[in-house]
Each structure stands twice: as structure tokens, then as C-alpha cells.
Amino acid sequence: MKRLRSVALALIAVFITAAELQPEARRSGYDFASPETRAMQDDDTANPGMLWVGQGETLWAKKAGAADKACADCHGDAQTSMKGVAARYPAFDAALRRPIDLEQRINRCRAERQKAEPLAWESAELLALTAFVAYQSRGMPIAVEDKPELRGARDLGAELFHRREGQLNLSCSQCHNENWGKRLAGNVIPQAHPTGYPLYRLEWQSLGSLQRRLRNCMTGVRAEPYEYGAPETVSLELYLMKRARGMPIETPAVRP
């Protein structure tokens, strides 16, 4: 029985690998965007995401919570202390014994060090701080860790990515591994590499997190989306970052 199971697992693994993207075939969502959208991302004075980065810079130095501390009081100059940090998230949190993403890390810091209320998901403040921190890693390759403690979450993420769900009975992989570059109605299907989050989506007319994007996709296939911050969404984020390992961070990116 055990042997049968391992054969079955190996077969699944082979099947999954067959549909995987080859590293050299990977392309950022930037490459699928129109020249106008790319120009908007390339010019920091035209990129609306920079409005949030600017707000984040202000918040970084602003004291908050009962401890009356600012991010800068512990971390100092973000340009040096936060360089490369976003490229490593989601990362394993030793106290929680599970991976957490950058937004959750910021809120943990608020709760533990600043003794402040957590910022709401997709609030302007949380997006601004996340964008400001991630901006410090712009141009650096994605480098999520390969720790054994993260294995469970990574495997869950991989499984969710390949699992069909919703009334349309589609998996992430069917669109983003097998049919990228083709069109879904008016839009080109990208490969789903989370290189530029939080990013400015013209459709949203706002900055948004990777969690928001994932929930959008789930609603799109008419599945019940996971809650913000659910272990399933963080696992998916982790899997996607691992899948995009080595690709440069573009935060704040601009997408249609």
C-alpha cells in the first residue's frame, strides 16, 4: 500500500514537472503589458505606485502605538536595513512556526514592538509601508529561502496551484503554465510571477497586494476565495515566489 502510494506520488510529481515552466522561458508580467503601461512603470514621476512609496517613507519615520516607536527607531535607514528583505518573503516565523508574508511581518512588528493596532489588509497605510519596504529591493533577484521548515507550506502552495477549483473547474496552472501568452477575452494571460507587488493595477485604480490579486483570480474561476492572510494564500505566495526565484523585483509595478 505504502509502495503504491509512493509510486502514485512519483507519477504526480512527473506530471507536475511536465507542465512546469522552464527557468529560461519565464517572463515577467511587464513583458505582456502594453508599451504605454510599461512607460508608466519605468518613469518614477509617472508611476502612481510612487505615491504609496512616498507615503510609506513618511510612515516609516512616524511614531505609532503605546511604545511610541517608529519603524526607523529600530531599523534605521530603510535604504540599507530593508535592502533585499522583500525578495526573501514570505519567510518562516520562528514564533508562529509558519511562513508569513511582508504585510503580516509589518503587522507583527506593529503588535510586538510598537504595541499598535494592526493595519487592515489593503488599507492605504499597510500598502504604503509594504510598497516602501519592497521598493528597497527593486532590481534585486527574488531569493525566498529553501528552509526545510517551509517545505509543508511550499508543497501546499504547489498543490493549490495545480488543483482545479471553482465552478469553472480551473487550476492556476492551466492558465499560467499551459496557456500563458494567449488571450482570455481582451487580456493576455501572464505567467503569474509576483515580481512587482504591491503593484498599481489600472483596473483597480489603486495599489493592491498579491493577496488581493490571488483572491481576484479565485473569484474569477468562481471559487470561494481564502481569507486575507489565510495559510493557503500565504502558501500560494510562497510557491509563486519560489517559482519566480531569480527574477528581479519591480515594486511598484504597473499592470493593466
Partner: peptide
């Protein structure tokens, strides 16, 4: 509101300069 304004800090007399402005607003 948050604003981004870009214009050259210095220019030559008679030079054509480009000014770019971006402001955060919901435009409801």
C-alpha cells in the same frame, strides 16, 4: 493629498522644459 511633481531644478533661459504632476485622488 500625496503629490509627485517633477520639473528640472535648473534650466537655460529660453529652454523648453517638461513638467509632470501626479496627485492621489479617488476621482469618484
Amino acid at each position: 493629498a500625496r503629490v509627485l511633481i517633477n520639473l528640472p531644478a535648473r534650466a537655460k533661459r529660453g529652454q523648453v522644459i517638461e513638467i509632470k504632476t501626479l496627485i492621489a485622488h479617488p476621482m469618484e
